Simulated assay, not measured.
Amino acid sequence: MAAVNPYLSFNGNCADAFNFYKGVFGKDFLVMSRYSDIQIEHMSDPSESHKIMHVALPVGGDTILMGSDRPNMMGPGTEGNMFSVAIAADSEAEADKLYNGLAAGGMVGMPMGKAPWGAYFGMCTDKFGIQWMINHDYSRQ
């Protein structure tokens, strides 16, 4: 496994929060993309185009603070579910193994599959209510 990073969710103010964090940590974003930057078939609500789809900010060592705005289809977040644990897997096989293990007895959010940003990605909530995001970036092979 390459890395485990915190992933924060916001109700429309992700850009404000991460610009604040950027000032605190004194680092530049690795990426900040909006929903309008990537076409995702089941997420085509034009009112969300300005929202942050993904942001990554290095905060020290190998740790990257990541985040996004929750899409309307997921409903508003509340305290206790505004984070996920993001795992960078070294291969599709490792991603599948981790995903299947974590999703056992839990809930599938997004099955593992090829994502528009060039990765193999899936989301699930484990049987204890913890949200997980598993990502294998093909460019890291």
Results as ranks from 00 to 15, higher is better:
L8R: 11
S9W: 04
S47R: 11
G75H: 07
A15M: 14
P76L: 15
M32T: 10
P6Q: 08
M73T: 14
F18L: 09
M82Y: 13
N72H: 04
H50F: 05
G60L: 14
G12Q: 08
N72L: 04
D62G: 06
S9Q: 09
D28R: 05
V31W: 05
S68V: 05
I38N: 08
A56K: 13
P76R: 07
I40D: 11
N13C: 14
G77A: 14
I38P: 02
A3N: 03
A56V: 01
L57K: 07
E41I: 01
F18D: 10
F20P: 10
C14Y: 07
D69F: 07
M82E: 14
F10S: 00
G77V: 15
N5Y: 03
V85I: 09
E79G: 11
I52Q: 03
I40A: 11
S47P: 10
V59H: 05
I38W: 02
H54F: 05
N19S: 06
Y7A: 00
M74Q: 11
S84M: 04
I87K: 03
Y7P: 06
D28P: 01
L30T: 14
I64P: 02
M73F: 13
D28W: 05
D45G: 00
E79T: 10
G80L: 02
D62I: 01
Q39Y: 04
M53T: 00
S49K: 09
F18S: 13
F83D: 03
L30M: 11
M82K: 12
Q39P: 12
I87V: 12
G60W: 10
G23E: 08
S68F: 08
I38L: 08
P46S: 08
L65P: 14
K27E: 15
Y7I: 03
L57W: 02
P6Y: 03
V31L: 09
I64E: 05
N5T: 00
Y7N: 02
P6G: 00
I64G: 02
V31D: 10
Y21L: 12
P46L: 01
P58M: 08
G12C: 08
V24P: 12
M73L: 12
Y35M: 08
G67S: 12
S84P: 00
I87P: 06
